[in-house]
Amino acid sequence: MAAVYKSLSKTNGHKEEGPANGVKKNKQRVLILSSRGITYRHRHLLNDLASLLPHSRKDAKLDTKSKLYQLNELAELYNCNNVFFFEARKGKDLYLWISKAPNGPTVKMHMQNCTSFHSHTSQKQPLTQNPVHTMEELHFTGNCLKGSRPILSFDASFDKEPHLRVLKELFLHIFGVPKGARKAKPFIDHVMGFTLADGKIWIRNYQINETEPSKSTAVSSDAEPKPKPSKSSNSKETEISLVEIGPRFVLTPIVIQEGSFGGPILYENKEFVSPNQVRSEIRQKKAGRYNARAEQGIERLAKKGDLGLRTSGGRKAPVNELDTAMLFA
């Protein structure tokens, strides 16, 4: 009887929910997984992100790197409509695939972190060598509820170009926790920033720290010649400051496909230089140094030979009549 009632009430509930909202509900579920061969840093980052996204489902590492379309089936299996996939290459490069599961689009991005925040480690390094920062790192002092819904802060330049708009939409789906998410917590205590700079997307995660408007600031504002009128109106409002929680990372979009892990390519970033190429160029430059030196040596020999300064080979110096060897032979 109870079961019948339950089923009845459930269906009723469903029916009510549908028309009541009118518009489509924001329903997102994210499948989070990685390929084989990720480093511990990548794994930590993945765990951090999974802990920040209560609407996510973490799965075991995917065995294949070539048959990514298998991810679609996996997503269907777990009722996920988003896929968030870390692909590690060569045990150092990390690529992030983001996809809307059944029909796409899919974005492939290169994940890296350019510079660290600490000034004492700010010696410039090539981009590829910089690791990803995870929450484990101890200079992020912020903290937030596990599963609280973030505020997503987008840079206005995301609306400028169609491929960026697609990216923004995908970020909105994946990093935005939908309202009724099962494990979501009721309060809002962190904000995620997505900024476009230098053709890359920089992602930061901050805790919202609310403090009572302290007396010292009040005094200072009094001391200032122009006290703000708005301040007095909502004097009860607490002041907001941000503390970074981490993780932080930088994404370089590489390619956008129409389907989910397949389909024609809609966008390709021509400015992206793969880390492999960067490395190979560095190597070649190093090899080039030796080659240049060897070449120089050969040239010098040839030059000496031309001047007749070598005992064997090259041009012989013309015999001088007045040479001592000729005179006293």
Partner: peptide
């Protein structure tokens, strides 16, 4: 593709999506 996946952000209440776009692009 965007149209296909886009959420009707303008129609939704803010608490549904909680996304804010800056009025002017951040310049660095």
């Amino acid at each position: 593709a965007l149209k296909r996946i886009a959420l009707p952000v303008s129609k939704m209440s803010f608490s549904e999506h909680q996304s804010i776009t800056t009025s002017t692009p951040v310049s660095i």
